[in-house]
């Protein structure tokens, strides 16, 4: 159930957003994809073709593995993550 909030800091956006996920099934790669779909073309201009998105922990800039789930990546309730161009 999508009841676990993450704070999303998407490159180019004016402010941070909240995304509700299922920590046990949602992967970091999916977090990036959902953020892209919800924010690009809404508050952020289309990204240059081939742009790869990297998710990293906001506090220490530590990149997160796309294949890991939110829980496996060790993200806490209301953890802030940056989603930036790789």
């Amino acid at each position: 159930m999508d009841s676990f909030p993450l704070v999303i800091n998407f490159q180019g956006d004016y402010g941070m957003k909240v995304m509700m996920v299922d920590p046990d099934t949602t992967t970091i790669g999916e977090v990036a994809r959902i953020a892209h779909d919800e924010l690009v073309g809404v508050v952020v201009k289309p990204l240059p073709p081939g742009t790869r998105l990297v998710v990293r922990r906001h506090t220490d800039g530590q990149p997160l593995d796309d294949g890991k789930t939110v829980a496996a990546a060790g993200l806490v309730f209301l953890e802030a993550v940056d989603i930036v161009h790789g």
Partner: peptide, 8 residues
């Protein structure tokens, strides 16, 4: 023009 994600 109305984001679906909530603002932090």
């Amino acid at each position: 023009t109305e984001p679906k994600l909530l603002p932090m």
